[in-house]
Amino acid sequence: MLKPTFALDFERPLLALQSKIGELKELSGGAKVDFTDEILKLERKARKLQAEIFSDLTPWQIVQLARHPNRPYTLDYLKALFTDFVEIEGDRRFAADRAIVSGFARFDGAPVLVMGHQKGRSTKENMVRNFGMPRPEGYRKARRLFDLAERFRLPVLIFIDTPGAYPGIGAEERGQAEAIAVNLEVMSGLSVPTISTVIGEGASGGALGLGVTSRILMLQYAWYNVISPESCSSILYRDAGQAKKSAEGLKLTAKDLSGFGITDETVQEPLGGAHRDHALAARYVGEAIRRHLAQLKLLSPEQIVADRYRKYRAIGVFTSDE
């Protein structure tokens, strides 16, 4: 388990209790006094508290978990689930974009294209990763790799985790919207199996620019929507501080999206969230990907295109007079 270096407000009582248990265990080690009963009692209490806190998370709390600085990122899943990774960085147009990590690797021994948004953990890392906000170059690199995946018949496995595509002058000059648009179309037409997993934040077009996949999986405490709660509330209420309210209204949790039939599976997280146990989180994600990939591999290339087309063509809620 990772050492909790950062705690969300609602995690604090639990973490306090767990650190007390840790102290008692250390004292027991001296064997002068037996705290076994105490420890068992506190552990029961901790489990109960954890269950209570996590059984009733608000959408805003889920957004905070999705952004937890210790949460596993794309590279963490890459290390845990893939072997033989060769990073491919070139967009052949303008620049390397490190907000998206991509390359060839093996998943269960078979070659795949793996790709995802990458956030940084330190300020220095975030300078390199641009906080996981790609510029057009990132999407164009992805597009180039989609073409290669198609030609070499590689399944495409994607991790989504971005606060959005970068809104800057250069990004606009070089066609941010065009870069994303092209990816939507290219991804919709790939004849290899494609699976995206929303592991943290899925903000708007910046997320969807890697997300038009045969299957969409989503971690239990990830969020995915057309806009971030902060941006939504600054438009609606002219006040980013109302984000909590927007988070509720937007219906952005894994539970919501699964209910709408948008996602194909909600991937359970370890107790207390993916940041509490990276290895277990990766195992759950790996199992889900493996299951869906096995199903998709049964389809012919034509069926894969048709299946994906049907999936997206059918999304929408409206009525007509007939």
């Binding site: 939507l184 179309e185 919709s188 038009v212 929507n225 952005l252 063509r313 999304i315």
Partner: peptide, 23 residues
């Protein structure tokens, strides 16, 4: 752009229309 009052459904219209164009 996309209409935030319809949340994820609005976002997915981008995918839907692009898939239609691809066909």
């Amino acid at each position: 752009g996309a209409r935030m009052q319809e949340g994820i459904f609005s976002l997915m219209q981008m995918a839907k229309t692009s898939a239609a164009l691809n066909r």
